[in-house]
Amino acid sequence: MLEYINIFYVIFKRDLTLTFREKTDFINSLAFFIIIVLLFPLTFGSKSELLNTIIPGIIWISALLATCLSLETIFRSDFEDGSIEQLVLNRYPLILLVSAKILAHWITFGIPIIVISLTLGVILSLSNEIMMALFITLILGTPILSLLGSVMAVLTMGLHGSMLLSILILPLSMPVLIFSTIAIQNASLGLPIVAETYFLAGILILAITLAPIAAASALRIRLS
């Protein structure tokens, strides 16, 4: 058991180190996210009423688009330098190693997105209820995006360009987007958001259970 925790930690740490050393991809997707969100107040004016209605949705859509950008890199270098063969032909379960990579992706992408979103929310003077709903939906939703996206990233690996990846991820993440935006709308009207939160949590659990298995099998198929 300890062995498994150790290998999980090693792969996780390796991916974190790599992301922070090869900063460009990491910074690009976050910068892309910030710029898209900030384009809207520029074009629609800064009336706080209007911003309160559109910004949470905009943040969610931008997060989705930024996910597509960042996911392209999650397995790319492993495929290029042959590390993927070492991961697959390992004594440890591939599912475990893939999970470590997905967790590392969420830490380096999901968490910054949440922090930036809340900062942007303050800058754009969103109401407290909306901020709370935004926080809850993002913290449940971004791991789903990382999990689902990693499966798609494996499947589209090596098929040039990230266009295909976006086309696959965007429709699949629609349920997440729908529940999140409904939750935020309800919050802005002072209604409870318990139902949507449960749904998102349910999808998250499903994704945690199934996505690593799917990603691991997809990896084996991609290699052969």
Binding site: L18, R21, G82, S83
Partner: peptide, 13 residues
């Protein structure tokens, strides 16, 4: 132990 054509080492480590 399998070693392919590639070195399977990370250039930023």
């Amino acid at each position: 132990l399998y070693l392919g054509h590639t070195n399977a080492i990370k250039s930023s480590l």
